Amino acid sequence: MKKLINDPKDVVVEAVAGFGAAHSDLVTVSLDPVFIARADAPVAGKVGIVSGGGSGHEPLHGGVVGFGMLDAAVPGPVFTSPTPDPILAATKAVDGGAGVLHIVKNYTGDVLNFETAADLALAEGIEVRSVIVDDDVAVKDSLYTAGRRGVAGTVLVEKLAGARAEAGGGLDEVADLATKVNERTRTMGVALTPCVVPHAGEPSFTLADDEIEIGIGIHGEPGRERIPLEPADRIVDRLLAPILEDLPYAPGERALVLVNGMGGTPQVELFIVFRRVAEALAERGIEVARSLVGNYTTSLEMQGVSITLLKLDDELIELWDAPVQTAALRWGR
């Protein structure tokens, strides 16, 4: 493998240190235990929001720490959950007295470790709520999950819950909003190539030169099927079909569309994908009211894409448009 790293065991700590140095106006970092917090944390009287999970999905989660989104992110080893200790440390660091919401992607290790950290925080007098994100429609269960996986839709949950918290929402209100967003969000992805985890040094799975995997997970978990490579429009139609089957839209309803790159996909290809998504939704009378195109929930250098639809209403549009200032998302401030 060829990677710009030093020692594989130091990848996460060195990356977090570099991220903190690059964005010192937005965040502070702790290297023992490892977590990233917004520079002004804790914000008195505001619900704190903490997320995290295995590294390798950047900019998720550290890249969305800041005003209007996360108060802290806890990166574990590559594709491996952080342990409860740094999650607890991050929770304590952002507790402004109004409680803390944990946003957790639905992977067994993440769920168990965040649950333990929440129990430890409660023992120290910090009220914690947890919302599990499970937006992936590809598979119901896998080696990593009980139920659906949490994937790129996590970015939307974090943005909208962050806006509600920034506006002064209480802990239950922010948790309810995050739950609402998760319930209205569906994602489906495809991989063109595998990725190489630094400590493994070899591809996490294999695909023939003319093969793609429909429904791939963000850690390289198997999807629904392997098929020969097809033109982009046909692949988009394959991804949209299960999303719209699982959460149907009536003509006139509005959607936020996230076309998310897996880390190794050029932007020119992402916009080709978005073009077909917008066209296919228009054919069904669905309005693309908001959109986001780029690398937000990656899988190291994997080539591929995921499509996420969030069914919007007036409340969610207002929260999406609310100001945000993070390394990955910035507008309105």
Rank of each mutant, 00 (worst) to 15 (best):
G217E: 11
T193V: 00
E202L: 09
G220R: 12
V139K: 13
T185V: 06
R226Q: 12
A165D: 03
T185Y: 01
G150T: 06
L244F: 08
G223K: 11
L207M: 06
I227G: 13
L156P: 02
H219N: 07
D172S: 02
A138K: 09
I227H: 10
G150A: 09
V174G: 02
E230N: 06
G189M: 08
V157Q: 11
A191V: 12
D176A: 14
T206D: 12
C195K: 03
A146Q: 11
T193I: 00
P198N: 04
G162F: 05
L207T: 02
D210Y: 01
T187E: 09
L240E: 00
P231R: 08
V155E: 03
G150E: 07
A146T: 14
V181P: 07
V157L: 09
G169A: 11
E230V: 14
K180N: 00
L192V: 01
C195A: 15
A165Y: 08
K140P: 00
C195F: 13
P228C: 03
L171R: 03
K180L: 01
G162M: 11
D233K: 00
R184Q: 01
R164E: 13
E166L: 01
I235Y: 15
G189Q: 06
P194M: 10
D176L: 10
P194Q: 10
D141F: 15
E230T: 03
G169K: 10
V139P: 04
P198L: 06
A165C: 01
P228D: 10
E158Q: 02
R234S: 14
M188C: 13
V151K: 08
K140L: 06
R184C: 01
I214A: 08
D233M: 03
P198M: 05
E166Q: 08
A200C: 00
R186S: 03
L143F: 15
R164M: 12
M188D: 09
N182C: 05
L192F: 06
D176W: 12
E245N: 08
R148A: 05
G162H: 04
P222F: 12
R224M: 12
V236A: 04
G189W: 08
V196M: 12
K159M: 03
D233V: 04
I227A: 14
E173Q: 15
S204Y: 11
G170K: 05
K140T: 10
C195P: 09
V196E: 13
G168I: 09
M188V: 14
V155I: 07
H219G: 08
R234D: 15
A241M: 10
T187W: 02
F205N: 10
S142F: 06
G147A: 08
G150M: 08
G189Y: 04
A175Q: 01
K180G: 00
I216D: 11
H199P: 04
A161H: 02
H199G: 00
A165F: 11
P222I: 05
G168C: 03
I218C: 12
H199D: 08
T154S: 13
R186Q: 04
E213I: 02
R226E: 06
L171S: 02
A152S: 03
A167N: 02
L244W: 05
G162D: 04
E245I: 07
